[in-house]
């Protein structure tokens, strides 16, 4: 029972970005992938979500491969991605954006509505329900993007740089929301983040990605304490 990435190789056009990356996300687990820009983090999540094609290696969920299915089908099966830069539909309202998220959950209904809890916890979403998405602030947009993903009833949630462009305070708030999503939905979360420190604080386990390869993996606290991360980012130890 997990989402597995097995010796994945891929890239844009002719430029290889990932050179055999393997990782695993269990149900309910929060796994961080950290690494500097250009390490291949975004490529990794986009490939898992089906926006880029797999060159070699495999993607499996609960043991069955989905490396050849379309992005839409992956979303419908519960592998849901929040893309870098939020990518809300700019001219749709907040409500319509969240409604679009529900499309992916059609046929997987039942139980309590996962969105309701978020709406209770963050009344701002209800306040802005009929507002056009591109008029929201960056932090609000990220909240809507996360809520939209939750509406898709994710089994595994892929988050690409949720803190991008947000102030430190807003970043904290987003991480609080991510934590809450994990508790409420029980989804396994793959969090790709440049803000390594916060991501590693929140995560259970972590992988450090360097130049398209996993250079370290382990419990998040261990990774956080190691010099590896500092080196990966700043090129200097300590």
């Amino acid at each position: 029972m997990s989402l597995e990435v097995d010796r994945l190789e891929c890239g844009y056009d002719r430029a290889p970005i990932l050179h055999g990356v393997s990782l695993r996300v269990g149900p309910g687990e929060l796994v961080a992938v950290v690494g500097s820009n250009g390490a291949g983090k975004t490529t990794l999540v986009r490939t898992i979500a089906g926006l880029l094609t797999v060159r070699s290696g495999d993607l499996r969920v609960d043991g069955s491969s989905f490396a050849r299915t379309s992005a839409a089908r992956r979303a419908r099966s519960g592998i849901v991605m929040v893309p870098e830069g939020r990518r809300l539909f700019p001219q749709l309202t907040v409500g319509e954006n969240i409604e679009m998220g529900r499309r992916a959950a059609r046929g997987r209904t039942g139980g309590e509505d996962p969105v309701a809890a978020l709406l209770d916890a963050f009344p701002i979403l209800t306040e802005r329900w009929d507002q056009q998405a591109n008029l929201l602030s960056g932090g609000e947009q990220q909240m809507v993007a996360l809520t939209r993903a939750v509406a898709a009833r994710p089994r595994y949630l892929l988050l690409d740089e949720p803190s991008l462009g947000l102030s430190p305070l807003k970043t904290l708030e987003v991480f609080r929301l991510i934590e809450m999503i994990r508790e409420r939905t029980g989804a396994g979360i793959l969090l790709v983040e440049q803000m390594a420190d916060q991501a590693l604080q929140a995560a259970d386990r972590a992988y450090v990605l360097e130049l398209g390869r996993v250079s370290m993996e382990g419990p998040a606290a261990e990774v956080r304490a190691s010099d590896e991360v500092r080196r990966a980012y700043l090129g200097v130890a300590g």
């Binding site: 803190s163 430190p168 440049q194 803000m195 390594a196 420190d197 980012y233 700043l234």
Partner: peptide
């Protein structure tokens, strides 16, 4: 610059 704590925290996202 690389030893500037402000730079380090901006990169690693550590609260100041």
């Amino acid at each position: 610059v690389l030893s500037d704590e402000g730079v380090v925290s901006a990169y690693l996202g550590k609260p100041m």
